[in-house]
Design a protein around this nucleic acid. Structure first.
Lengths: 258, 258
DNA sequence: CGGGAAGTTGAAGAGCGTCAAAAGTAGTGG
DNA sequence: CCACTACTTTTGACGCTCTTCAACTTCCCG
């Protein structure tokens, strides 16, 4: 992971210009960079207060990635845990012959790097220009031990990840190509809304190949399926990777297997 | 969930006869039923000591299920968390038209019931005769707040579940039928070894349909694939659902996509 | 504007699903 | 103890969805 820019905590104000506008939290002033983090309520830092935010600020660094740059590789020592501040990441596993399964796309507020055997279980790569907070695992574990509410928050987020993973298994194992694409678009849309971004048209920053590797399809099938949905007036494909869901109910019916 | 036998904590000694022989832990005597639990080191109770085991004993009940009986349904209020003591469970999600995806098989030591919106995200049903510990969620949360090491253990187990789920996504999205079956057998085998049971021949207590719904295949394809593996002398199918892996390396090569 | 990557479309083929039927297995009750 | 029944498993024939291979088009970004 050579091409990886690590910034000091003090660069954070500069970086923050890449994130959505900061809504300053009342009464907390400018005590720590984390206190002004605009996506904090989405992350595992959410339950922390003023004093604790200063603490966490002291262990965090920032990382900036250009599209296609790697954050870490599957099998590498899991020395850090990351939280996405801005941009979009993909995490995937590979088979020896190159077949790839993307297990998730990550956006602002999502975390990555939880490992179980001290090594990362997947490779993480930037889809778009991205910014992440980097927490050395050891330091974070000290924090977790001191602030149980943070550990509880992390457990809640892991639980959510688990539910999402199970939904994805249902999709991969039992849905048709059309159902997969419809589910994917609706999921992207609702996640964008959660982050306070536009839900329709929804931003689809990843390539057809990425989408295929996420849904267990080939590039060609993804493309053909988009064309089908367009011909049925369910979606409108706008330039710049924006997809308008012209018939959201129709898409929902398809996604649910109706 | 009508047909579900709830036993008082005091029936535990009776039930324990269903579990593997208890290796009595030195110095803990017979203070609490949980102290004598033979699978405790596999569960989220592992980090607890004498005093704490008495506490947890006071909130636990036991549940016994015959094959095909339900523990809970997807969408039901998630009032309890369970830990499998003996037997085999399956958890699955359904599409409206009946297509089913089994997201996991659970054995002694595994937990189930973690929900994120106060409702279960999947249905849980017994594969074989099974015994489980039932913890009221509220009571367990009080315990977790009091004993952070238990919460840490639970986070560790959730993290492991997550890694397993990602591996399963790779299987569902990118592996062939033959690779799926080979991976499945190897996984069953290594999990059996972890529980101290025979790894080869390995017990395969679930039906071909269950296996298919777990691997994203049909019954027929599962059966045909077993036949192929048998014809290639990779496995020997013994009566009573025992499968002998005659060529473990060969199976491993297939499972890894080689 | 130009070059390369990404996306689209077509034709042919493979793998797995579907439908159907037979064979095996287990549990039940006479 | 054995026959009856119901379910599970296996096997076969056929078909469809999605993949593969290939060519062409569009979209970016320098």
């Amino acid at each position: 992971m050579q091409n990886l820019k690590v910034l000091s905590p003090f660069d954070v104000n500069n970086l923050r210009t890449l994130a959505p506008a900061a809504q300053s939290v009342e009464g907390e002033g400018r005590q720590s960079p984390c206190a002004a983090c605009s996506v904090r309520q989405l992350t595992f830092c959410a339950p922390l207060g003023g004093e604790e935010l200063t603490q966490i600020s002291s262990i965090v660094n920032h990382v900036e990635l250009a599209p296609g740059e790697y954050l870490f590789d599957e099998g590498e020592d899991a020395d850090n845990i990351f939280s996405v501040t801005a941009g979009a990441m993909k995490v995937y596993k590979l088979l020896p012959d190159g077949r790839r399964q993307i297990t998730g796309f990550l956006f602002a507020g999502d975390f990555l790097g939880l490992a179980h055997n001290d090594v990362y279980a997947y490779t993480a790569e930037a889809v778009t220009h991205s910014v992440l907070c980097r927490f050395p695992r050891h330091d974070l574990e000290v924090m977790l031990a001191r602030y149980p509410k943070m550990e509880r928050r992390l457990l809640g987020m892991a639980r959510h990840e688990l539910a999402v993973a199970q939904e994805q298994m249902l999709l991969l194992g039992r849905k048709t190509a059309k159902e997969k694409i419809a589910s994917f678009l609706l999921s992207l849309s609702s996640r964008a809304l959660q982050r306070g971004q536009a839900g329709n048209p929804v931003a689809v920053p990843m390539t057809r190949m990425d989408i295929g590797d996420y849904l267990g399809l080939t590039t060609e099938t993804v493309s053909r399926t988009f064309t089908q949905l367009r011909n049925k007036k369910l979606v409108i494909l706008h330039p710049g990777g924006k997809v308008e869901m012209a018939d959201r109910e129709g898409l929902q019916d398809i996604a649910d297997g109706g």
